[in-house]
Design a protein around this nucleic acid. Structure first.
Lengths: 140, 140
DNA sequence: CCGAATCCAGATTGATACTG
DNA sequence: CAGTATCAATCTGGATTCGG
């Protein structure tokens, strides 16, 4: 009970903080920091990879298994992009069979709060989300 | 000071909650609710539109002005998609000149916490974010 | 065998011009 | 004002192939 109230308080604080900053600059051009952040993050595979890597270091094949539906090409491409954006590090082990491990950097780990908020939202809104999703993705 | 501690507490709580749920189901296939959420949200324009609409109801032209760089086609497409996903409502006024207003639904408003967390992250990490962005988007 | 590069058809996006 | 139409360019995904 107390925990819930504390969380709700922090939430309100965050929203207010956002709106305050919105007033400072209300045009989202390419110099806006929020816009630049979204260029790195607004990507389905990138977000999924980051969420999975929050569990800890993973091998390429583990990522491919956990993220069902990603092609090897897109997984590689996504990982390279995340690496270039310093959110993930890539470590190659010169073994047979080869092993490559991916780990979040500190910068990547700093995304834990936003990503957790997103996942929490998905769980909270699960019924409505599933209804909407089914309507938008009608399968035979 | 107290405010900061409370916020940090809530943050830790959120991250822990996420990780707990991760253990329940660690495969992100198309039935995973997080995956379905990302299908709706992992889109640069959609996220920007939602963030701007958190400021309140907006006309089409206001959105186009605030979201610098979006083409009319993509803005329309994004708004139609958000409308179909029940995150936004579209209201047409039979006037001359025509007026169309877009407003977040309650479902859309429920995204305020995750979106605020994302914006807060962008502001917190601004220096590093700008460095990374500049490296990835070298202009002549 | 694992991780990744290549090639190619099809989908998505963006810039611009145009209309009710 | 609030969008459509059109066309070029880019991006995506799947199959295949390759190197250690």
């Amino acid at each position: 009970m107390v925990g819930k109230r504390v969380e709700a308080g922090a939430r309100q604080q965050l929203v207010t903080g956002l709106l305050e900053r919105m007033l400072v600059k209300d045009v989202f051009d390419e110099t806006c920091i929020v816009n630049q952040a979204l260029v790195l993050l607004a990507d389905k595979w990138a977000l999924l990879v980051l969420i999975v890597l929050m569990q800890g270091t993973k091998r390429y094949s583990e990522l491919q298994r956990q993220i069902r539906g990603v092609s090897p090409k897109m997984l590689t491409q996504t990982l390279r992009s995340l690496e270039q954006n310093e959110l993930v590090t890539r470590q190659i082990f010169p073994e047979v069979p080869p092993r490559v491990e991916y780990t979040l950097t500190d910068f990547g780990k700093s995304l834990s709060h936003p990503l957790a908020a997103l996942c929490d939202w998905a769980f909270e809104q699960e019924p409505r989300l599933r209804t909407v999703y089914r309507k938008a993705h009608p399968e035979p």
